[in-house]
Simulated assay, not measured.
Amino acid sequence: MLVLAVCFALIAAACGSDDEPAPAAPAETVAPAEPAAPAEEPEPAAEPESTEAADEVPCDFDEATCDYLAGKDFSGQTLTVGVWGGDIETLLRDIVIPPLEARGATVELLLGGAGDRLAKLYAEHPNPTMDVLYLNIHTGRLAVLDGVAEAASDEIPAYADLYPIAKDSEVYGVSLLALGIQYNTEAFDGPPEWADLWNEAHKGKIAFPTFPSTGGDGMIAIAARLEGGTEHDTDLAFEKIAQLKPVPLVYTSQDELGLLMDAGEVVAAVNLSGYAVTAADNFDTVDFSFPRDPGPILAMDTMVISAGSPNRDLALAWAQVALSPKTQQAYAERIYFGPTNSKVELSPDLAQRVVYGPEAVEALIALDWPYVAEARTTLTERWNREILED
């Protein structure tokens, strides 16, 4: 199973041990005290100078996170975190890393794609060089099932505040996205539903995601559902998707998609909410629809701690800070990724633009991810042959 999982990860898609503690300094020899003069009252012993103020590290997170970090000293420990670059890297450097560095930790980010991280995790098991990994919803689940990552733990207080879907499959859900419709506002009377993509007026103007991808997985699932099936009914799905041809664009860049949609060369695309809402900020004629019939597809970035991490306590501290309301709010405010922590409070305007609140979370459609992962190789061949070829 382990070998198969490695193979899959490669198709689909560091860490030193703690420093040796410094030897303790030898105890100083204390000379015997002179006897006190009998005529003088002995002076009261001076109170030992408190080191609490010197050792106390300021904390501007929520009370639960500050209590969890209180008194922790990670001196001599280096935490290696595998994660994506770009805006997510910047957010982690700005918010998650500083409170750990203030408590003596060294944090190194190993940047790259989730597939490469997953393959490395399997190859190095049981002696991982990464302590924490950021993965997508189905690869995080796979790592836990195969025993190369440990199950999410309620040892950190933030775990209790996560939405149930963010604890599913024993991973830590980090951020929520909805796979919905990015669209040109001049081509539709209002936010479109899934079925509107098949309107004859839009034939040949629907941009496609790459495959394999979350967007491609979702497109197959939605097409099948519109015909009364599920993601398992791939014949229904491919026949439905083929009706959208010709394919004007397979987008590999969000900027390219935004520019062509703003120009009217494409009128809609299946896309993730965070990216599409960012595009709406940049283009006057671009917006995003959270469909309702059926609803949007669940997409979620996840985090796992590697099985056998030599810095497990530090990794748990990372998880607590990363899942705290402050960090989760930053995900929403900076990149429109919805919070998985139910304690986060967003402004009404921002709440409308991200996946936020129990009702919005429950509206997300969770796919059969083990099936999706297993079928990707076969479906990729079929996608290239039946959808992309003329």
Rank of each mutant, 00 (worst) to 15 (best):
N341C: 13
T78C: 07
G258C: 09
D116I: 14
A152L: 08
A33R: 13
F290S: 02
P58R: 03
V57D: 02
D217A: 15
P42I: 10
G86C: 08
E89Q: 15
E101V: 15
D55A: 14
P126K: 03
K72D: 03
E101G: 11
S309I: 10
P21T: 11
L260I: 12
Y163I: 00
I137P: 00
E63C: 08
C15F: 06
K203G: 11
A5I: 00
P164D: 11
P339N: 05
V144M: 00
Y122R: 04
T210M: 03
V355S: 02
G258P: 07
A24R: 04
N136I: 12
A119H: 02
I137R: 07
T65Y: 06
A123Q: 11
P21D: 08
R334P: 00
L379Q: 05
Y159K: 06
C59P: 12
I11Y: 13
R292L: 12
D55F: 08
A207I: 11
G274L: 01
L298E: 05
L135N: 01
G216C: 06
L109K: 00
A315I: 09
N184V: 06
V57K: 14
G113W: 04
T90G: 12
M300K: 01
R385V: 14
R376D: 09
L364R: 00
A152Y: 06
N341R: 08
T230C: 07
Y336M: 14
A330R: 06
P248L: 04
A299K: 00
L259F: 10
L367A: 09
V355L: 01
A31Q: 13
T78K: 13
A25S: 12
D284M: 05
M261G: 05
W194F: 11
I387M: 08
D189K: 12
C7D: 05
S169C: 10
V266Y: 03
P291Y: 10
V277S: 01
D18Y: 08
P358V: 04
L179N: 11
D67V: 13
T80R: 06
E265H: 12
E389H: 14
I222L: 01
A12D: 14
L100H: 07
R376K: 12
V266A: 02
A39Q: 14
P209V: 14
L121M: 13
E362P: 09
L109A: 01
W198H: 07
T278R: 13
V96R: 00
K72P: 09
I241M: 02
P192K: 07
V174S: 02
V83Q: 13
R117K: 12
D293K: 15
A151G: 10
F211E: 00
A276N: 09
P26N: 03
T278N: 13
G308M: 11
I387G: 06
D94Q: 14
P339S: 05
L298S: 10
E108K: 14
Y134R: 12
E43L: 15
